[in-house]
Write a protein that binds this DNA or RNA. Structure first.
Lengths: 114, 114
DNA sequence: CTTCAGGTACGACTTGCATCGTACCTGAAG
DNA sequence: CTTCAGGTACGATGCAAGTCGTACCTGAAG
């Protein structure tokens, strides 16, 4: 628990434009859909999303999500942790995470039986 | 009432990605914020949004909104009408329009007293 | 120490897209 | 008919952004 938390914008300073631009990208949205569906809000390694892109690009995407105020990045020096800012996002944009969670269900439905 | 309605995707075929990409643009989001705030859902001319862009670009933006399934375009040949697909959007993405309406309130607050 | 995996910084490349110029269409008004 | 405003089609342009290559840093394991 020696991680340094990096939280960019304050809770009530989140801008809708930045959030929507962040969610417009397919890979970033995939990350947010997974995070929104995990009700436990467990800290996740950025390696656990299986993104089909290079690690430099992943760094870029997680930075965008952090600067939009959607996630925290916990820096362990060597590793990095990702955590959804559920309370802040839900307070500023109530219902947004529910939309992403619904998308998760929709994807699972498409995966099993169509 | 001789307008030809142009409705692109069916109600349950709206894709979250297309919707978020459409809302990521500042001008398109301004249009949607106004539409979401108008509970009367009156048909509006695309001239009534005071967008600081050329008419060709406006044509482009309204096309994106229509293809995303957010609005209908009523073609009068000479003119054009814009109408929010409130019921369809609300059924497919419950809470989304509320987020946009909240943004409208936030903008009004910023305009009057900060 | 060396080695290695995870992550970042910087730069280059490429794609997407917002924007507009030109030309054309449509319907209404003179 | 002509004129004009609203709208579209097509192409060109400029900029933002996603992507990756190279190099470097950090901490853990041998």
């Amino acid at each position: 628990m020696a991680g340094t938390h990096r939280t960019d914008p304050e809770a009530d300073a989140l801008e809708l434009g930045a959030v929507l631009r962040a969610l417009a990208d397919e890979h970033r949205r995939a990350v947010m859909v997974e995070l929104a569906a995990d009700r436990g809000d467990s800290e996740r390694g950025c390696h656990s999303f299986d993104l089909p892109i290079s690690k430099q690009t992943q760094t870029h995407h997680f930075r965008v999500l952090r600067e939009a105020g959607l996630i925290d990045e916990i820096d362990y020096g060597n590793r990095k942790g990702i955590r959804l800012r559920r309370a802040d996002v839900e307070r500023r944009f109530p219902g947004l995470l529910a939309l992403l969670e619904a998308e998760s269900v929709r994807r699972l439905d498409r995966a099993t039986g169509d």
